[in-house]
Design a protein around this nucleic acid. Structure first.
Lengths: 124, 124
DNA sequence: CCTATAGTTGAAAAATTGTTCAACTAAGCA
DNA sequence: TGCTTAGTTGAACAATTTTTCAACTATAGG
């Protein structure tokens, strides 16, 4: 099942270390895990969205206030919030015409902190 | 300096809560922080690159072995490794013609773990 | 009911990113 | 020196993503 011979030939080279390849393949998580992880990190992979999250890290905000603070249209903000909402990264409450957005949990803070830690480390 | 009136008018709406906007703006990190954070998370925002990192999380590997394991060309792998190298996420050692890549530090593991934690949490 | 404003939506346009291709460099070996 | 293979590189192409635009919904107030 972990044999090296029947891999998809979508590549342009040969296995050089069959034992390593088999060892790694046996431990490689399911494809949908990497897909979900990549999709999650995509939400943090845009400067405007990072700044939006940094805003919400400080205080809950409505769409207009976010738009002015970041210097983008409220449509752009709304699209970003929609994506963040789908992945349970932000939540909202309505107060009349105004909708206040805030962070859904402490994961955003943790993920951003990990990123900052890497950026600030000595050997970078 | 934190007054609400002289924001860039790149947006299409008015500030609704000037006190919140000022409060948030005073605490918003510098723009280059968000840029560097976004650029870092971009490296985790692609399924192939996540799988590549998952490989290296298990064992150091050479370009060919990674290419076969992931089912992509060695050129694609090389481009990904180049980007990861620039951000000090992977390092390498040469052994004859073969170059073995491995993770530069424990941040990858931490960042990926945070992502997994969010994906597996009850309210998502 | 009419108007005004906050926010959403889908599609098109603009910008960015990932992969491939072909030519290249570097190392090993005869 | 000449051949083979591992890996890199840049440019072109393909795919994806972000922003904008215009039309839309929902709520408030007169």
């Amino acid at each position: 099942m972990a044999k090296t011979e029947h891999y998809e030939p979508t590549t342009d080279c040969q296995v050089l270390h069959p034992d390593i390849v088999d060892y790694v393949r046996e431990r490689l998580p399911d494809t949908n895990v990497s897909l979900n992880l990549a999709n999650l990190f995509k939400l943090f992979a845009d400067q405007t969205r990072i700044r939006l999250l940094q805003c919400l890290l400080t205080h809950e905000m409505c769409v207009c206030d976010i738009a002015v603070t970041l210097g983008v249209t409220k449509s752009a903000v709304s699209h970003h919030l929609h994506a963040l909402k789908l992945s349970n990264i932000v939540r909202f409450r309505r107060e009349g015409q105004v909708i206040f957005y805030s962070l859904a949990d402490e994961h955003v803070e943790k993920i951003v902190s990990m990123g900052l830690e890497h950026l600030l480390e000595p050997f970078s």
